[in-house]
Design a protein around this nucleic acid. Sequence first.
DNA 1: TCCAATTCAATTGCGTACGATTTAATTTAC
DNA 2: GTAAATTAAATCGTACGCAATTGAATTGGA
Lengths: 146, 146
Amino acid sequence: MAPDDMTLTNQLCFSVYHASRLFTKFYKQALEPFQLTYPQYLVLLSLWEEDRQPLHKLGERLDFGSNTLTPLLKRMETNGWLTRRLPATDHRQLIVSLTEQARDAKPEIFAAIHQCVAQQNVDVSKYNDTLAMNHELIATLQRMLK
Amino acid sequence: MAPDDMTLTNQLCFSVYHASRLFTKFYKQALEPFQLTYPQYLVLLSLWEEDRQPLHKLGERLDFGSNTLTPLLKRMETNGWLTRRLPATDHRQLIVSLTEQARDAKPEIFAAIHQCVAQQNVDVSKYNDTLAMNHELIATLQRMLK
DNA sequence: TCCAATTCAATTGCGTACGATTTAATTTAC
DNA sequence: GTAAATTAAATCGTACGCAATTGAATTGGA
């Protein structure tokens, strides 16, 4: 994973880390009007795909533990994005559901993001290549961590 | 930057974010014996390239502000990795220098990382392709944030 | 049935990240 | 030479991330 040249700019780890923080900064701008942070937006993305997920399933998709999700979801509940309730069948689980506000805001939020992106005329095929390479990288890292 | 398919797995931002957190987890394992965190290791990488940098230059390379670096560097000083001192010429600056311990540990630390990587026989040309793509991505993001 | 193992969410503690502000030192303009 | 502008580190407050532990609920085997 690390090349012989151990300079900062030649470290894949640093370039990924740097890009990730720039993405966070970018989304911060786009999401500011909605009082959403970037990790909170990821939770919405997952719930827009599938509503009413138990916390541990949400955590599985996002690779978050309850130590990260519990306080984050409480903040989102406070801000009216979702509800947290125990199902009658199993009191260990916590079902997370979108509110009306969250369902309604979806097109607005996507529009806000697209508008921020629009000026850059992104190359779609390059986007997909980069995405594919990142998926390979993730797979490699997951193998290494087993 | 965002494709029409707004699912989690098709979001470049999430794949970068996920990869970055996996890298952090990987380096946590490799760096544990040295009492170093991953951002602290990045500081060492920069100082191994060029010793005796003022805080703001270190921050420029790593894209960190003093709000992040000040406490991080204090922890590293406590653990014996570096010294922080005001130069006689300009008392606004803070010069960060490696300790003997940090210079000596360099080969050991690289060996530890390489050992963790070795089992995976990484494809060097793919490493470089991914690195190049990430650099392009970083450039795009920096343009978008200007 | 009943208790041991398992499954979950919550809690704790620490170290980032980062916007915003403050404080101190130096430089510049006049 | 001095006040204003600039530069730089530190401080403050909030929100992650995550290892480790706790505690409650459920399941499963004797």
